[in-house]
């Protein structure tokens, strides 16, 4: 169970609070999509929930425990992240990358036990990264790399997965495949999956629940249906060029010229 209790996220500099006073919860098995335009605070919110950034106020609780004050090792056993930032890794192969997910569970040497191997094999199978296990991570294409990082997060067998714009580098069939796979994993393994995306149509079709951030620091929550009927989706995304159509449940290009 993930509980956000009057959570305010942002920065302790001039940028200040990005999103304020969020109160909500997500249950195991929930596939949550976080939507919002660039700069609306999606990443800040996700980093805060993942414990990588401190909250300005309030708290995020996972299974009743404050994520910010968890021991790093405990947090690593319960929360896995995939981020957009790219890193360069001399000599690191794909199987190394995925195996690193088991570090929170291994002894001081980092040696893998049987259950570690099972978790890795499962993650490799569902993400389809088997063909490039022995390649160098830095030789992969952006899409392949993203798949590997998702496999790594799955191999960490977390209670909560935080995935920030992971489908950005994937083509449409792969996006559908990956998002559907993550939703199935959430149900099957009783995990909470938080996923931010610019893929509005796909997110609205797949999400159990949508967290919607608008440019003004506003925040609304609901099922895709509720949000489209209430006009919140239109409020967050409508611009001169695009408009949300509640009747059709999708975005349309407005012909202004």
């Amino acid at each position: 169970m993930l509980d956000l209790q009057s959570l305010t996220v942002g920065y302790r500099n001039t940028r200040g609070a990005v999103v304020s006073d969020i109160d909500l919860s997500a249950a195991p098995g929930d596939f949550v999509c976080i939507l919002g335009r660039n700069g609306s605070g999606k990443s800040t919110l996700m980093r805060t929930i993942a414990g990588l950034q401190t909250a300005l106020d309030g708290a995020a609780l996972l299974d009743g425990e404050d994520i910010a004050s968890m021991r790093p090792a405990t947090r690593a056993r319960r929360i896995a992240v995939v981020l957009t930032e790219r890193q360069f890794n001399p000599g690191l192969r794909v199987d190394d990358v995925i195996a690193l997910a088991r570090q929170p569970f291994t002894g001081w040497q980092g040696g893998l036990a049987d259950d570690d191997r099972v978790a890795i094999t499962d993650a490799v199978a569902v993400t389809g990264v088997e063909p490039f296990l022995r390649r160098f991570f830095s030789d992969l294409s952006d899409g392949e790399r993203q798949r590997v990082m998702i496999a790594r997060a799955l191999a960490q067998t977390p209670h909560l997965m935080v995935l920030d714009e992971i489908t950005a580098f994937l083509d449409l069939p792969s996006r559908v495949e990956i998002m559907a796979m993550l939703r199935d994993q959430a149900r099957e393994k009783e995990q909470i999956v938080l996923l931010s995306s610019h893929d509005l149509d796909l997110s609205l079709q797949l999400a159990d629940s949508v967290w919607l951030l608008d440019d003004a620091g506003g925040f609304s929550v609901g099922t895709p249906d509720e949000l489209s009927r209430s006009g919140a989706l239109g409020g967050a995304f409508d611009s001169g060029a695009i408009r949300f159509s509640p009747e059709r449940g999708r975005f349309e290009i407005t012909r202004t010229r």
Binding site: P90, L100, Q103
Partner: peptide, 23 residues
């Protein structure tokens, strides 16, 4: 040898290392 395990995670970058429980 004592730092080896954590240092392996740092190969993924600082943020991922932190998400794997490394200080």
């Amino acid at each position: 040898v004592a730092t080896a395990k954590s240092l392996s995670s740092l190969l993924l970058g600082e943020t991922y290392a932190r998400s794997l429980g490394v200080r």
